[in-house]
Structures are given as structure tokens and as C-alpha cells.
């Protein structure tokens, strides 16, 4: 401790320290605590490697706009999550979440919302799955394949 501080400085520092904690909303700290639920889950974290909403350049936007006038795929968002052993390719529309595990393999897929609700869906032999309705945003996916690989995506915000 800075013994050179006099009582006034120490008291001011203490006030600052207590106010710094009070400035943090309780919900923020609670969220941090709830993350511990993911402790010891033996899953690889899959990183977001493609997001159509963030990769569009002017040309793509322009071509999509012209191509999709009246077409139904304008609101599709494509996302790819990649881990060392497998990737998840996702297509999110208003009503559902479609995806495929690459390389194709069967398994189960869990969608978890931040509130903790979990939807479990089978993944078929060619790695395809469908979650209907689309989970409440933000959510994350956890995929376990029959070969024992397990991956977890980051949070997906729509």
C-alpha cells in the first residue's frame, strides 16, 4: 500500500474503488457468473469465420439487391463457424435455422439461448439439421457428432 498516502488520499481512493464497482450494472456481473455453466464442457470453441452480414461489399450488396427484388432469399443470413475438427455452416431466415456439419456426419445439435433454454435437434447422416423456430437471439450452438467430436459456437446475435 502506498504508505506515502495521507488519510484524505486513502479515503478518496477507497471511495473511487467502491464507486468503480457500483458503476458496473449487476446484470453485467451476473452474466459473468452464469458463464461458469460452460466450465468443464469438453467442447472445442468454433470461431465465426464467415458472416454474410459483415462480408458484403458494395458490389455484393448491389447485386443482391438487384437479384432479390421480389426474391425470398433477401433475408437469409449465412454464417460459418470453424473449429479444428469441423465446421458448421448456417443459414438463418426469419422462421428457421438450417445448417450442415462439415465434413458431413450425424450427431445432435443443441441451441442454447442466453436465458438458458435449450432446443435439441438431430443431425442426419449428411450432417444436415434444422432448428424451428429460430432460437431467440442471442443463442449459441453445441454440436456433438457420433464420432465424439464436440464443438461450441460463439454467441450468435441476429
Amino acid at each position: 500500500m502506498p504508505e506515502s498516502w495521507d488519510d484524505d488520499q486513502l479515503l478518496a481512493a477507497l471511495g473511487e474503488a467502491v464507486r468503480a464497482r457500483e458503476a458496473v450494472p449487476d446484470t453485467f456481473a451476473e452474466m459473468g457468473k452464469s458463464v461458469y455453466a460452460w466450465h468443464n464442457i469438453d467442447a472445442e470453441l468454433a470461431q465465426l469465420t464467415y458472416d454474410s452480414s459483415r462480408e458484403q461489399d458494395h458490389d455484393v450488396v448491389a447485386s443482391m439487391r438487384s437479384a432479390s427484388t421480389g426474391a425470398e432469399n433477401a433475408s437469409v443470413r449465412a454464417l460459418t463457424f470453424t473449429s479444428a475438427h469441423l465446421s458448421l455452416e448456417l443459414e438463418v431466415t426469419d422462421g428457421s435455422l438450417l445448417g450442415q456439419v462439415i465434413p458431413p456426419q450425424a450427431g445432435t445439435l443443441e441451441a442454447q439461448t442466453r436465458a438458458g433454454a435449450i432446443t435439441t435437434t438431430p443431425v442426419d447422416e449428411i450432417g444436415c439439421f434444422s432448428v424451428t423456430p429460430t432460437p431467440a437471439s442471442p443463442f449459441r450452438l453445441r454440436c456433438r457428432t457420433v464420432t465424439g467430436t464436440e464443438v461450441l459456437t460463439g454467441w450468435i446475435t441476429l
Binding site: F28, M31, G32, V35, W38, L45, R114, P138, G154, W155, T157
Partner: peptide
């Protein structure tokens, strides 16, 4: 901020 916090704790 929530997004960052979530990622950091995770």
C-alpha cells in the same frame, strides 16, 4: 459491452 463481457468470461 454485453457481447464483449460474454466473450471474455467464456
Amino acid at each position: 459491452v454485453e457481447d464483449v463481457g460474454q466473450s471474455v468470461w467464456l
